[in-house]
Design a binder for these strands. Structure first.
Length: 273
DNA sequence: AATGTAAGCAACCGCCTATCA
DNA sequence: CTGATAGGCGGTTGCTTACAT
């Protein structure tokens, strides 16, 4: 059985919002808040569905919205975040106060994606690109309680690669300094496999450009052997890394992924990129 | 000036998940 | 425990504007 639509379509207006509707919605929310989006249009006297009202408020009318062009810094953050998270626009938006997921999504599709493709083409044309040849590493992880950390870079048929962090059980007591949380589970529990379901963490989906950046062996080595001395050259985490890293709040789940990614590389040497 | 095309953006659609009765 | 509901999210559409021919 198909679920009923969120609102009775009959008689409800669709399409662009008029100035008058904006004023009604803004006025109502300022007075009464928006605890119930579905009921809101009826109470406010708007011939719109709740979803439409919510979208209009969140993406346009809310006083928190920052209008205007994206700064270079913002664009760089979006690009970096997209490397890490893929199309998780709301998560990216959470790191850019005043910007909405919809706005970021639009910017990505209209500007940044094209720019990235162009940049990648230039890299391909102007320099030798290291190819990824399905390396699979299993090394002792000296700086943590991991008994084994496996990083798997699996080229697919398409343009995307998957980075997986695969862990095996550790019977040592945890002294990890990871403090971030993700989906209610501590990084310790994932790394130490308290939960068998966590034995394989598909961390993120990234596009080809991530691995096709020109990186020297020394850069790779220094990146992978230290999470504090990152190279500042043409690396996916380039000179904006510090700002990017600092942009994460301690209590945000993104910290988890970022830390996991960076730290998973420590004491791990990548063979033959 | 008229027409065609591309780019930008607001808004909608449908699915997923959390919550609650 | 189960089903209904609301909110949230990402994908997509379609309108408007800018630019090229």
């Amino acid at each position: 059985m198909v679920r009923a639509p969120c609102c009775e379509k009959k008689g409800l207006k669709k399409g662009p919002w008029s100035l008058e509707e904006d004023e009604i919605l803004t006025s109502y929310i300022q007075k009464h808040g928006h605890s119930n989006w579905r009921a809101l249009p009826k109470h406010a006297g708007l011939l719109r569905c709740g979803k439409s009202c919510r979208l209009r408020w969140i993406n346009y009318l809310s006083p928190d919205i920052k209008r205007g062009n994206f700064t270079n810094e913002e664009e760089e953050i979006i690009t970096q975040m997209h490397h890490l998270l893929g199309n998780r626009w709301s998560a990216i938006a959470a790191k850019l106060p005043g910007r909405t997921d919809n706005e970021i999504k639009n910017v990505w599709h209209t500007h940044l994606k094209k720019r990235l493709l162009k940049t990648n083409n230039n890299h391909h044309n102007s320099s030798t690109t290291k190819s990824v040849s399905k390396p699979k590493i299993e090394t002792p992880h000296s700086n943590s309680n991991l008994s084994t950390l496996t990083q798997s870079y699996e080229p697919s048929n398409g343009p995307n690669y998957f980075l997986e962090i695969e862990t095996t059980s550790s019977n040592g007591t945890s002294s990890s300094d990871f403090s971030s949380q993700s989906q209610g589970k501590s990084i310790d529990s994932i790394i130490n496999c308290e939960d068998p379901e966590d034995s394989l963490v598909t961390m993120l989906e990234i596009d080809e450009s991530f691995w096709s950046e020109t990186v020297t062996d020394d850069e790779i080595s220094s990146t992978m052997t230290s999470n504090t001395e990152l190279p500042n050259q043409q690396h996916p985490f380039n000179n904006s890394l510090e700002n990017f890293q600092n942009s994460f709040d301690d209590d945000d789940g993104m910290d988890f992924w970022y830390d996991l990614f960076i730290r998973s590389g420590e004491s791990t040497e990548l063979p033959e990129f």
